[in-house]
Design a protein around this nucleic acid. Sequence first.
RNA 1: GGGCGGUUAGCUCAGUUGGUCAGAGCGCCUGCCUUACAAGCAGGAGGUCGCGCGUUCGAACCGCGCACCGCCCACCA
Length: 866
Amino acid sequence: MGLEDRTRYDPAESEARVFARWFDSGLFHPEPAGAAAENYSIAIPPPNVTGALHMGHALNGSIQDTLIRYARMRGKRTKWILGTDHAGIATQTQVERLLASEGTSREEIGRDAFVERVWRWREQYGSTIIDQYKRLGASCDYAEERFTLDEAYARAVLKVFVTLYDKGLIYRDNYMVNWDPGSRSAISDLEVEDREVTDTLYYVDYPLASGHGSVTVATVRPETMLGDTAIAVHPDDDRYTRLVGETAILPLVGRRLRIIADEYVKPEFGTGALKITPGHDPNDFEIGRNHGLDELTVIGEDGRMTAEAGERFAGLTALEAREAVVAALREEGRISRTEPYTHEVPYSQRSGERIEPLISLQWFMKMEELAAPAIAAVREGRIRIHPEGQRRRYLDWLENIRPWCISRQLWWGHQIPVWYRGEETYVGMDPPSGPGWERDPDVLDTWFSSALWPFATLGWPDETDELRAFYPTDVLLTARDILFLWVARMVFMGLEFVGDIPFDDVYVHSVVQAPDGRRMSKSLGTGIDPLALIDGGPRPPVFSEGGDFPAYGADAVRYGLLAMSSTQDVRFNEGTIAEGRQLANKLFNASRLVLLRVPEGLTVPETAPAPSTVEDTWILSRLQAAEAEIAEAIGAFEFHRATRTLYRFVYGELCDWYLEMLKPRLYAEDNAEPAAFALYVLAETLALAHPVIPFVTEEIWSLMPGAGDLLMAHRWPEADPALRDADVEAEVARAIEATQALRTWRDGVGAAPGSRVPARLDAPGYERVAEHVARLARFEFSLNGDDPVATVGVPGGAVLVLASDAVDLEAEKRRAAERAELLRKEITRAESKLDNAGFVAKAPAAVVQAERDKLDKLRRELDELS
RNA sequence: GGGCGGUUAGCUCAGUUGGUCAGAGCGCCUGCCUUACAAGCAGGAGGUCGCGCGUUCGAACCGCGCACCGCCCACCA
């Protein structure tokens, strides 16, 4: 189809073609050279290998690509490090589910076969999300895709483990962990979320060994009492002081329990006496260690009661045991009271099951020593975290850091490089020689390997050219949910192993919520698929209206997400995506206007041609303003401002005014000069818009005569302050204001749309723009000396409307009266302000003067009216 | 229990250091198929900037209090 007939920009038609040209150019893949300080790099937050692109990725990717393209156009050697994360629990769970559907399980097929199966799964689905990033236009280095389980990457992981072990920072210990019965693994504190649950609070009487009376404790988990090893009361609690040191008898079991005093106990809660179960409660565990209590495990890793729970209960699930224990206690008359009790209970984010705190032999990382430099780097401003609130979160977390449980009882991941033979332990990157060694079956927490991402992807521990050229990276973009899980850990790992921060800036961007304010989630039906927006897929149920999205295209999605984004969460707003589509279409059509009028042989000027008219000077000046503003906004990570400035420039200045003023000259017979100038302005605008909406700008670029290969590789339009012209800006601003005033007047009196209204322009400073005003407002200015029938205020004076068929005198009378009314109101307001002695005396002179000028102007217009 | 953020037009959101800052897009109303675009153009209506008190000549903006909403951190049975 010829350009003449392409009246709409069709993203579906051009995006694949444009992406292929980018991809084939090789510009996504930089040869490593130079130092990191002169290059520009970003490490992508690696998506889960089997995941699909969601709104979070789309926003995160749009921001990064905007930054990458901006840097590339500014002549930087630019690398966007790409790859995927093996995502231990998430991936293993998916494959286990698949096995279950086939009627088998990982235990049944065995570890080797299972891992083999996951690798095959990864082969099958691992490229999906990468392809989806391409649909967004992401200019990642696809030639160097990394995976956290790649052989080289795995070597880096093992080296880090062994090094930290040798330094004594990694150790094995029996400690209380968050046991996730769903994934049958320990998980970290950060993978636990609290949910509100209403349980029953049971008041249970424990008889005293003395035979005189009993102590009543309150508990929501009666089944854990089988593991009780003490009762605690507050040392200052008078009710119990005499009992401290005595012994109580555990009902059903008969175990003798010491009554101890500990300040942890809250006297006002329950009965003020607390049963202590060191094996199954984090608080009790602490108290137990402080008082040297026995630690009994009555609930096992399978979620069932152990032999230690007694044969009456062993083998029951914890929930079954609770009922059995309660029934047994009731039988013995030990339950004096129950009440409903609503509280927060820990659940696994991974499996959704209730966390079972238990004591387990796990690997831990000691954190204080590693955290200190990571705190200092941010405190001293070597790493800047935006916005400020996130910086504080980061510091608070690291300053209160606890040991990190790094082992997971999974099969998919980096197996811990530790071997045992009897009492012997061997730790090393390669297996020990000799017979009889058995490797620790656990794997490392996924975040252990992700923490090495910015340097392990560049070839560390080898001192590669890539590492030299691109580490540290420039900026990390993320939502706040992985600030601790990932960002903080990258910082201390980078400092520890490369000796330098992993990035200079961390920008924490919005989380995009569903239109109704809920979290976007597939299971809730609130998730919106970015691909559905690009291609025009079905609207999810969270939208009130049904049907398919229009095919907005990638540019619209990028623009919309950037325009929605800020430093706080935002609700998804389809209208903002639509705005992006309109912008792309507008630019496309503005380009058609120019391109279809360019005479044969004319090419895009390399540098700004000398402007020959006031509107040329004006648009050149405004272009510099937009360029400066957008560059500043991108530099400050204020993408909302960048998109808004772009939109306003294109709509409010380029299209609404410049192109309209240009038309007579562009349509003239001999239009080489205005066409060349317009081509230049268009080229600059396309370059300016390219980082945000790369597809449509690249597409148009390919239609520009003599524009060169790829806009992607074109220089960024640097603002030139010398091209600003304040006088001309003011002159054209007056012309715009006058045009709008005249149009409003026309509408107010109901002038026939096509008619040209005769009038006399009675104001100075319009010599060079009067013709534009007349044409755009459909007026006919003359020197006719007749008495006017209407007066329209314009900057610096008035337009005196002459009698004609176009003017309805009655309508004009009404309009003039309304206008006068409004003017009187504003005059009163200005007068009272200037009558205020305090204002005149204390406000800056310029402010006072501005108010006086305003008053004069209002009075003049009112005079003219009457 | 601590901490952070929000509350501006019917909807989604901008509002830099207090003084043309009361804005944008969508939606709505009116009129236009004007030689790039009807996914368009022109014009318009609509808000006591959550509530109260204070600082100031002047507050959407600064301070205090309150009310909702959201998020984060925290081992209270």
